[in-house]
């Protein structure tokens, strides 16, 4: 059964909270997209267990928050598909999310730098 928690299907369990949000906002900042296309991209961005049901709900929620806008786009070759675009509000949300991630990166870099200065014990491996 697909659930929103199924979207947390990253393989190592270390992705930040709400990582899907900046992923989707970034993808839509790069250009309009469709559901399945977004699903494949977020999987490539580390959320390997992302499921369409969870993605659908997340997109709907972001649309209600007016971060995303969408419409049905008729196709000559197949059925109509929902096309998603980023709104101005979504762009601001992306900027805020990226800033938060930058802050986290700074913290992590500090930790990693301190780790790298630890004296290496004989036989111990840091990799």
């Amino acid at each position: 059964m697909s659930t929103m928690s199924g979207l947390s299907g990253d393989t190592n369990g270390t992705l930040p909270r709400h990582y899907l949000k900046p992923c989707l906002l970034l993808l839509l900042a790069e250009g309009p997209s469709h559901g399945y296309e977004l699903l494949e991209h977020v999987r490539r961005m580390g959320i390997k267990g992302a499921e369409p049901g969870g993605l659908y709900r997340y997109l709907r929620a972001m649309e209600k928050e007016e971060m995303v806008s969408s419409w049905w786009e008729p196709s000559q070759a197949g059925p109509a598909r929902r096309t998603y675009v980023l709104t101005e509000h979504g762009r601001k949300g992306l900027n805020e999310s990226v800033q938060s991630l930058r802050d986290v990166r700074e913290i992590l870099v500090t930790l990693l730098d301190r780790f790298d200065t630890l004296p290496t014990r004989a036989g111990a491996s840091r990799s």
Binding site: S5, S8, G13, H18, Y19, G54, R57, Y58, A61
Partner: peptide, 13 residues
């Protein structure tokens, strides 16, 4: 651990 939250469509019903 990543948690996506749980948006509900029903809240606006």
């Amino acid at each position: 651990m990543y948690h996506a939250g749980r948006p509900h469509v029903t809240s606006s019903a």
